[in-house]
Simulated scan of single mutants.
Amino acid sequence: MIAHAMTIIVNELNHHLTETYGINANHAPAGLRNISSEQFLPQPGAESATEECLNLTLVNIQQDSSDRNTNLPSRDTSGTIYQTPPLSLNLLILLTATHTSYSQALLMLGRAMRFFHVKPLFTESNVSHASLTQYAPENGLDKLNEFRFSFVLHSPTVEENQQLWATLQSAQVPSAWYKLGLLDLPPNAQKTKELPILERRMITNNVIKS
């Protein structure tokens, strides 16, 4: 589900950039990339990384505790049903512009940030069919069918930003942090049932009443 959610976001961003700014569709301006790998490290004599692209990199995963009690037991005619609660996650995404030209990097980063500001919410009904299918996972269990997730700007402290780039072991490039709020129900969620209560008894003055 994580891979498909991030793929949908990248597909939507690329569609926006090619349609709005006339960028060649054969050269996808954005992609899922690990910027800590060697191919993105600055080369000798270069001011920035060598890849001319926008990159979305997953840097942290947290469980969203606010949704921990949203799936309380429900009652039907056969008893009380207990179901595995949905998996609610907050993904911290680093958006970077690794262009050799610093001004071009700032330009592309600003375009992407403008897009996400206008469209911070993604559902199966407001994204294109191509965004759902292009580069989607092959296994159906890894795909998102009905979904609703947010992609909003996250403002780190100076210390957090410095720690992240030190961890990535990469020279800092124009970037922005985003938080992806994702809710997903595991495909093989287990359910258990309890028999319904057919009779209640109370003890009053040592006498049992039905």
Rank of each mutant, 00 (worst) to 15 (best):
59 V>Q: 04
156 P>W: 06
22 G>L: 09
196 P>T: 07
194 E>Q: 14
132 L>H: 07
21 Y>I: 06
30 A>W: 01
92 L>A: 10
67 D>M: 15
181 G>H: 11
163 Q>K: 14
17 L>S: 05
64 D>I: 01
188 N>I: 08
44 P>A: 02
106 L>S: 03
202 M>I: 14
192 T>G: 01
97 A>Y: 05
89 L>Q: 13
173 V>D: 07
99 H>A: 01
58 L>G: 06
111 R>W: 05
164 L>T: 01
80 T>F: 02
46 A>H: 14
188 N>V: 13
7 T>S: 14
113 M>T: 11
193 K>E: 11
103 S>Q: 13
168 L>N: 05
116 F>M: 09
108 M>H: 08
158 V>K: 11
13 L>C: 00
82 Y>C: 01
206 N>Q: 15
77 T>W: 12
187 P>H: 04
194 E>W: 08
166 A>Y: 06
192 T>W: 15
195 L>I: 08
109 L>V: 07
44 P>K: 01
51 E>W: 03
175 S>V: 02
76 D>T: 07
125 S>G: 01
182 L>C: 02
79 G>Y: 00
5 A>Y: 13
108 M>E: 02
189 A>C: 05
122 F>A: 15
41 L>F: 08
27 H>Y: 09
72 L>Y: 10
16 H>F: 14
180 L>N: 03
204 T>N: 08
45 G>M: 10
201 R>L: 13
158 V>A: 14
12 E>K: 05
21 Y>W: 12
168 L>T: 00
168 L>F: 00
193 K>L: 12
59 V>A: 03
19 E>D: 11
57 T>K: 05
124 E>L: 03
126 N>A: 07
78 S>Y: 14
96 T>Q: 04
78 S>D: 15
161 N>P: 05
85 P>C: 02
162 Q>V: 15
208 I>H: 04
13 L>T: 00
166 A>F: 07
154 H>D: 07
144 L>G: 08
90 N>H: 09
98 T>R: 08
155 S>E: 15
50 T>H: 04
145 N>P: 03
148 R>I: 09
120 P>K: 01
8 I>E: 07
123 T>M: 02
19 E>S: 15
58 L>Q: 02
195 L>D: 13
1 M>Y: 09
60 N>K: 11
11 N>M: 00
183 L>R: 12
85 P>R: 03
16 H>Q: 06
40 F>V: 00
54 L>A: 01
94 L>P: 07
51 E>K: 07
17 L>T: 08
33 R>H: 10
75 R>L: 11
150 S>W: 00
122 F>P: 00
163 Q>M: 12
127 V>Q: 01
58 L>Y: 02
191 K>Y: 13
3 A>H: 12
87 L>S: 11
49 A>R: 12
56 L>E: 00
159 E>W: 01
15 H>T: 15
84 T>Y: 03
71 N>W: 10
78 S>L: 05
180 L>P: 00
72 L>F: 04
62 Q>F: 05
107 L>Q: 14
116 F>G: 15
137 P>R: 02
3 A>N: 14
180 L>A: 08
16 H>T: 02
52 E>R: 02
149 F>N: 09
163 Q>P: 12
63 Q>K: 08
6 M>A: 08
56 L>I: 06
26 N>P: 10
208 I>T: 14
59 V>H: 02
207 V>D: 10
89 L>F: 05
102 Y>H: 04
26 N>F: 10
